[in-house]
Every structure is written in structure tokens, then in C-alpha cells.
């Protein structure tokens, strides 16, 4: 019986590949968009304008305070009521990008705040403009703090992309759900689904750990 199941599973491998492709594509697109948006928001969050900072902070709190599943439902079912018709893929991208941007915003803001004020003063004193101070002095130093949790955040994002299967996108998790209807061996099917995610996520987890160690060491070295 297990033999038959394996054969049947082997037959579903094109579907599995498509699912994996969807997971990777969803994650990659929202990862890039979320990073860009997150850095922008993080810079604005620490930019000194109280109102802008408070608005961003409130939005980030809303997103961090609600389950991602609920956010997807809100975007997928409610935006159409405002006349914005969305397919599941676009809704998934919007939800994931927004989620990533909010978490990355806080990571970037924490990194920027960790840069000693003396560094900003030195940059000010030599006449660097706002953008030059950010680009040349603050961000390069903030990256040491930002990078390890940023990579960790990417892992969370890839895992969170599994939740978009709830609005019918055929990602890796959805494929498992479809296959298990035909091949009634949940342990085997979802073990294989897990392997798929593991292959994508584990290298990133290792990278995050290495960065954490390296950055920790570099940080110690720079201490005066």
C-alpha cells in the first residue's frame, strides 16, 4: 500500500514543483518590496517628524497585533467593497509585503537608533546633508544591528506565505492539502511539504546565525 502511495505521490511532483515555485515567487516578490518599503518607513520613523513617526508606529502596531490570516481575509474580502478587485495572488503579495514592511520598519528603526549620536554630530559638523548622513554614516553602522534580524524576518515571511493557501492560492502548503485528499497519508505528505520549506528556510536560518555571531564579534572589536 505504501508503494502505491509513493507512486501516486511521485505522480504529483509537477504539482508539488508548481506549489514550491508559487511559494518562492510570493516570498521573493514580497521580500524585495517589503524590504524597500520597510527601510523607507524605518528611516521616516526615526526622522524626527513626530506625527509621521506616530502614524507609522500605530500602523505597525495594528499589523503586529492581528493574526496574518485575519489580515489576508481583510484584504481579500474587504478591499473589493471599496471597488478594488483583487485576485488571490495580488492580495497575497499586498498582505505579505505589508507584513514584511512593518516588521522590517521596526528592525531598521532600532538599528538607526543604535548608532551613537556622536556619529550623527560628526557628520553634521562636516556639513553632510540629511541624505548623505543617512547613506554614508548612519545606515552602514546600523546594518550591523539590522542584518541578523532582517534575515530572520525573511524566514518568518517565507513561512507566513503558507497562510495565503487559505484564500486558495496553490502554494506548497495548498498542494499538500490537495494531495492528501487523494493519498490519505498525512504524515508522509506533510513531511514532504515540510522538507520543501526546510530546503528554502534552513540556509537562511544558518545565515542569520552566522551573521549574528560575526556582527557580535565585529561589534566587540569596535568598542572604544
Amino acid at each position: 500500500m505504501i508503494w502505491q502511495q509513493l507512486q501516486s505521490l511521485a505522480g504529483s511532483y509537477p504539482l508539488a514543483l508548481r506549489g514550491l515555485g508559487m511559494t518562492v515567487m510570493l516570498s521573493a516578490i514580497s521580500l524585495v518590496l517589503g524590504t524597500l518599503l520597510g527601510f523607507g518607513l524605518g528611516i521616516l520613523r526615526t526622522g524626527g517628524n513626530r506625527l509621521i513617526s506616530a502614524v507609522i508606529g500605530a500602523w505597525v502596531d495594528l499589523i503586529r497585533g492581528t493574526p496574518f490570516l485575519v489580515q489576508i481575509f481583510l484584504i481579500f474580502f474587504i478591499l473589493p467593497e471599496f471597488g478594488i478587485e483583487l485576485d488571490a495572488f495580488t492580495a497575497g503579495i499586498i498582505a505579505l509585503t505589508n507584513l514584511a514592511a512593518c516588521f522590517i520598519c521596526e528592525i531598521v528603526a532600532a538599528g538607526i537608533r543604535s548608532v551613537p549620536t556622536g556619529q550623527v554630530e560628526a557628520a553634521l559638523a562636516s556639513g553632510l546633508s540629511r541624505w548623505q548622513r543617512m547613506r554614508q554614516v548612519v545606515l552602514p553602522q546600523a546594518m550591523r544591528i539590522v542584518l541578523p534580524p532582517l534575515v530572520g524576518q525573511y524566514v518568518l515571511l517565507i513561512k507566513d506565505s503558507s497562510v495565503v493557501s487559505a484564500i486558495g492560492l496553490t502554494d506548497l502548503t495548498r498542494v499538500g492539502w490537495l494531495v492528501v485528499q487523494r493519498v490519505p497519508n498525512g504524515l508522509l505528505v506533510f513531511f514532504l511539504v515540510g522538507v520543501g520549506y526546510f530546503i528554502v528556510c534552513y540556509p537562511l536560518i544558518m545565515l542569520a546565525r552566522r551573521l549574528e555571531r560575526r556582527m557580535g564579534a565585529a561589534h566587540g572589536e569596535v568598542q572604544l
Binding site: 551613537p116 556622536g118 556619529q119 554630530e121 560628526a122 562636516s126 554614508q136 552602514p140 553602522q141
Partner: peptide, 11 residues
């Protein structure tokens, strides 16, 4: 402007 704590850019 020369600072007490130098404030050189460590990177």
C-alpha cells in the same frame, strides 16, 4: 569640530 570622543566613523 573636534570632539572629546573623536567620533571617527568606525566603518
Amino acid at each position: 569640530f573636534v570632539f572629546q570622543s573623536f567620533n571617527l566613523y568606525p566603518h
